[in-house]
Amino acid sequence: MLYGVSMGLMYRAALGLDPWDVFHQGLARHLGLSIGTVVVVTGAIVLLFWIPLRQRPGVGTVGNVLVLGVAMDGTLALLPAQHALAVRIPLLVGGIVLNGLATGLYIGARFGPGPRDGLMTGLHRRVGGSLRLIRTGIELAVLVAGVLLGGQAGVGTVGYALAIGPLAQFFLRWCTVPNTGARNE
């Protein structure tokens, strides 16, 4: 839920979205669907790419697909569009920090990666190479596709790109459930 709320906050800041949401926004504009619906459908489609990668979803994976878009649309329904930069900047910063916390919580819970993260780890396991390079390639591909579809990239996109790694690492320290030999990580 927190991840979807963070996505809604960044959307309402209207200062640039994370790469996947630039893609989701661009698709939503062309399909006439809410951005949350596009998030859900995209998550389900990305799961199909897991099949040849032999990735196995967990309960967290399925929850990610079903909850993120609903939480984002719910946040957008409750939080009206903002025009004052003095409101939009804190929305962006709060959204990015909340996204880092949500990342730490969902990865740290060890219930399975989200579809997009599983795509990255599956590609890494299947083709080898640098995890950072694979992640960067995926993020750049969806960002470019999203911009070409009319999604909004901006200072928030750059801020997210620079902050999410350190924030996720910080929150993972506090949110990771110790590995007790459970099968599904």
Rank of each mutant, 00 (worst) to 15 (best):
Q82T: 14
G58P: 02
P57A: 10
R29V: 05
I96S: 13
R110F: 01
G32N: 13
I107Y: 06
R116F: 07
L123T: 13
G58F: 03
R125T: 11
R116Y: 13
H24Q: 12
W20A: 11
G58E: 04
G16P: 04
F111A: 12
V5L: 07
F111G: 09
L76R: 11
W50Y: 09
A86W: 05
T61G: 06
L27M: 15
I89A: 00
L123W: 08
G32R: 08
A102E: 06
P113Y: 12
F49K: 08
P57I: 13
L68Y: 12
H24E: 06
D21K: 07
A71N: 10
L78A: 15
P57L: 13
G104Q: 09
L15E: 00
S6A: 15
V87N: 01
T61A: 12
D21A: 02
A13R: 00
P19T: 10
M72F: 03
I45E: 06
V46R: 10
T75L: 12
G94S: 15
P115W: 05
V62P: 06
M10A: 03
V70M: 05
L92H: 04
L15I: 00
L68P: 00
I96D: 09
A14Q: 14
F23K: 08
G122C: 08
P90K: 04
R88S: 01
L31G: 08
I96C: 10
V5D: 00
Q55E: 15
L68S: 10
R88H: 01
V46Y: 01
P80C: 09
G122E: 10
V67I: 15
R125A: 14
